[in-house]
Design a protein around this nucleic acid. Structure first.
Lengths: 183, 183
DNA sequence: ACTAAATAGTCCAAAATCGCTCTATAAAGT
DNA sequence: ACTTTATAGAGCGATTTTGGACTATTTAGT
């Protein structure tokens, strides 16, 4: 019946057979994922991107919804808490994001009063940024979720494994000059 | 030279000046980065996202330019090489990307003739996807860059470290049900 | 069997992202 | 000093991305 109806609608096309997974099962994600990971040509890069996406994606979505901040705005806020008095260019360089994206975020943040922007006395091209009080407050309100989610993500590792993971990341970053170039 | 100029500026600064780094130096990125990484509230998550971004960002840019493929289109192509006969929903679930993004990519890929799309005989709502020959060719043309870049990224690690990194990623992914949820 | 809920996919409008080009300032080379 | 090159940032337009509402089909609950 449903099959016949489908065949009628798409009369010319040959139908594909069933895929073999049971939709609606929690297991589905796992089996699918296994298929994607098996014999993956970029095993480490793929896994890392997978984890990074599932870590940060929902956080960004939550942030956009609850705090009306874009991802780029968050990046700027975050960088400025780490290191005040950066300018847009530096944030762009250190995060690898296009300078126009950062510039746009800076403009929005300034309009919202979350950062201040002053001309650098030593270089009148540059605008020195830092957090305002309300910028600091919104950062504080948000960062907890990031910390919690990292904690949850690492729950499965023991302390030694976490240290080792950090060490390996550190090594890769230390060598970034050798591999992290654009084309 | 540049150092001297910077030193001069440093002494003559009034309010908003003197960030302390010398623009134009290769060292700049490193010092900035150290500042961002030091006492980072999400040390592992931040480092992982940093590496993932610098790995995949330039690859995607290159791909968009040279092959006129969006990131979402690449994701679909990649998934279909791993596991033919997926549908859009499954790709969305397993990659964590919004289904509308995947749907849009699927439509584009079909228009370009890189994938085929047939109604699933067992479920007439679903469309079973797989690569066409030209889809396979374009995948082959692209994937090499991803492999090379992964290789370059891991150059600094010895084989045992690479295995360990893979093992730790595997553990985190295996526990994804416990932490990778949306809000 | 019948209703309610879940699922696959589409469509659309709003938003974000990003490449390109342009101005201005600053540094480097001669 | 003077020319050249590099840098910081702005503005604009095109493309991508995505949330939300909608339809069609399937599954689950009773």
């Amino acid at each position: 019946m449903a099959v016949k109806a489908a065949a009628k609608r798409k009369s010319g096309t040959t139908e594909e057979l069933n895929v073999g997974w049971q939709p609606g099962e929690r297991v589905l994600h796992g089996l699918l994922l296994d298929a994607i990971l098996k014999d993956n040509p970029i095993p480490l890069a793929y896994r890392m991107n997978y984890i990074a996406n599932f870590y940060v994606g929902p956080l960004v979505a939550m942030m956009e919804k609850s705090f009306k901040l874009t991802r780029s705005e968050w990046i700027v806020l975050f960088c400025l808490t780490r290191q005040p008095r950066l300018n847009a260019q530096q944030i762009s360089i250190v995060t690898g994001r296009p300078k126009t994206s950062i510039a746009g975020a800076v403009k929005l943040l300034q309009k919202k009063g979350l950062i201040t922007r002053k001309t650098d006395i030593a270089d009148s091209r540059a605008r020195v940024l830092h957090l305002s009080d309300s910028g600091q407050r919104i950062y504080t309100a948000i960062i907890g979720s990031f910390i919690e989610r990292e904690k949850a993500m690492l729950e499965t590792l023991d302390p030694a494994e976490r240290r080792e993971l950090g060490r390996l990341f550190g090594k890769i970053i230390a060598a970034a000059d050798a591999w992290a170039k654009p084309y």
